[in-house]
Design a protein around this nucleic acid. Structure first.
Lengths: 243, 243
DNA sequence: CGAGCCGTTGAGGGGATTCAAGCTCAGTGG
DNA sequence: CCACTGAGCTTGAATCCCCTCAACGGCTCG
């Protein structure tokens, strides 16, 4: 409790707001429930704001809560046997994270805010209570688990193989998706990029520099960029078809 | 338990056997059910034998069945945007695969037998029917989903980073776990190793050759090896602490 | 017996890492 | 106000790990 709440409380204000008119409700876990049910469900749920770098939860902690991402990007990281950090996937708006809390298990990995993030903290008990009456919730939970699984597998397939250029392009493409329709995306510090893509941060910097020279990216301080989606798609396509 | 499957039929003999006295029952999905329930559950389930290289199911296929692995090793592979195969995780004895069938979705990736494999084909309807009466089954399904997720993330963390030597050692260690207590393990053809670890097959061959010279492995034809677990653990430990 | 597949090994080249230096920018304190 | 510091980004040069290309041997099978 302390481990989770302590960093969160100082992080930002808890916004009292009804789940029923949540802007991400349709994309979120409770999107499958009726309005009345959501109203009851909302009791016990709290909205939390996190700054970049702050943890949503710690690996191994038996937390009792799962979270819906309302805004921002969250990364999942673990420490390898070799002792270095490795990022295994990302979650964005509408994503459900920390589901394993429902199983009385410790969290499988560390969840950390990449950007400024807003999450809804949903105590395990709330879900358990609802699930008895609402069979659709079970199905929705399974669906969420499956999409987490697919996200993890896709990360392996697309972001861990090929040249450094290909991997960086893939990452940027994914970040552009997470950013929604806007062309302004969050671009990680080079060191984080290295941890995500398993390359030296200097290499990440070189590739980004190259993309900038090709007008695919225009980087801003401290961690943003504007992407030319057409050029990006084109570069990715070229990269994928030669080799 | 019944006896047939169209695409799988040619693969091998179907063994008529009761689910209640299945040797892997305690590790399998229905391990959480009582004996009487298992007996009823078994109707509609069929056991299938597959040879190395044969598919359990195809990516995208809307199958209507999930599977429990009774024996052998199954790999999950997908085709990347760049057009090459990539293996994203393995499943062994007791593992549940193809769960996404429960969600009316196509299978997320291709499941292929690595070794000779025995699986139990469980029609979606069987699980759905049981789940109504048996709330523990829901929990067990979620638990399975979570372990698939963790297997995928661990694959990313441990098998896609570091030197080729470290990756091969990690793979061998995992194969040794899947092999159970025996020191004789399945060792993939070098080309498969390359697809698993994202390296050229010649490189895989070189590393295996090195391990053989270090007496960590003794390879057999066509796809087996005897491992010295002590030396393997030692080599891994050394590898993980320098760098 | 030749064809084909798989595994091994060598030589050479290239892409990524490593080691370094120089840069900008924020924050700090004289 | 400005020197100082440290963190993050960039770029260069040298090294090395791994890939590519190639040749060869063992085995299976038609």
């Amino acid at each position: 409790m302390k481990v989770i709440d302590a960093p969160l409380r100082q992080a930002g204000a808890v916004i009292a707001q009804s789940c029923a008119d949540c802007p991400v409700r349709s994309e979120a876990l409770f999107g499958v429930l009726g309005s009345g049910t959501v109203e009851r469900a909302g009791e016990g749920v709290e909205s939390v704001r996190l700054l970049p770098g702050q943890r949503v939860y710690a690996q191994g902690f038996i937390g009792g809560s799962l979270f819906t991402v309302r805004e921002g990007i969250v990364r999942f990281e673990r420490v390898t046997e070799a002792g270095d950090r490795r990022i295994v996937r990302l979650a964005g708006r509408g994503g459900l994270i920390g589901q394993e809390a429902l199983l009385h298990q410790g969290y499988a990995d560390e969840a950390v805010a990449c950007t400024e993030v807003q999450v809804c903290r949903i105590p395990k008990a709330v879900v358990e209570r609802l699930a008895v009456r609402e069979p659709t919730l079970h199905r929705e939970l399974m669906r969420r688990w499956q999409s987490s699984l697919e996200a993890a597998e896709e990360w392996t397939a697309e972001l861990t193989s090929g040249t450094t250029r290909r991997r960086v392009l893939q990452l940027v493409a994914r970040l552009a998706e997470l950013a929604g329709p806007s062309d302004c995306i969050w671009l990680p510090p080079r060191h984080e990029m290295g941890v995500m893509l398993d390359m030296a941060f200097e290499t990440a910097s070189r590739v980004i520099g190259q993309l900038r020279r090709e007008r695919i990216l225009e980087t801003y301080f401290p961690a943003g960029a504007r992407v030319d989606r057409a050029l990006l798609a084109q570069a990715l396509h070229r990269e994928n078809n030669r080799m």
